[in-house]
């Protein structure tokens, strides 16, 4: 190992750390909330439009999704545990709320992201 190796490694780590920091500071609030029920995407709502939506879950129950001030949350549901309601609001890309009894997943997305992201080079 030479001195330059250490300098190189430290430089890369510092750049990555700075990158992480900046990305965290400027965390992109997503533009859509994507609803999937039982694994199928059933609806995508624009976060910039306030509104209330009734979702019918897998066993016929309901979840009430509210979009307000670019945040999404579940206001009400008839599931037994109400975990989705207690989950609070989501606004940043990748954040999710899951209602297991109704198999409902709400995820914040940016349009253009799709399944191909999962393709990893060997």
């Amino acid at each position: 190992m030479k001195k330059n190796d250490i300098i190189l490694i430290l430089t890369i780590l510092m750049i990555s750390g700075a990158g992480l920091f900046v990305l965290n500071m400027t965390k992109s609030s997503g533009s859509f909330v994507q609803i999937s029920i039982d694994g199928n995407v059933v609806a995508t709502y624009d976060l910039s439009e306030n509104g209330t939506y009734e979702l019918s879950g897998y066993h016929g129950g309901y979840n009430t999704l509210v979009i307000k001030d670019r945040k999404a949350y579940f206001k009400d549901a008839d599931c037994p545990d109400l975990v989705c309601v207690k989950s609070g609001t989501i606004e940043s890309v990748g954040e999710t709320i899951v209602c297991l009894p109704h198999r409902v997943v709400a995820e914040i997305v940016n349009k253009g992201e799709d399944a191909e992201v999962d393709t990893v080079s060997q």
Binding site: I9, I12, L13, I15, S16, G17, G19, L20, L23, S28, V93, N110, G112, E113, D114, E116, V117
Partner: peptide, 22 residues
């Protein structure tokens, strides 16, 4: 990948990928 998927969202992976690459 960013060009193929036409999204800038992948930039979020970059810092973590740089650390894992190191």
């Amino acid at each position: 990948a960013s060009f193929v998927l036409e999204t800038g969202a992948l930039v979020y992976y970059l810092p973590v990928l740089m650390i894992s690459g190191t």
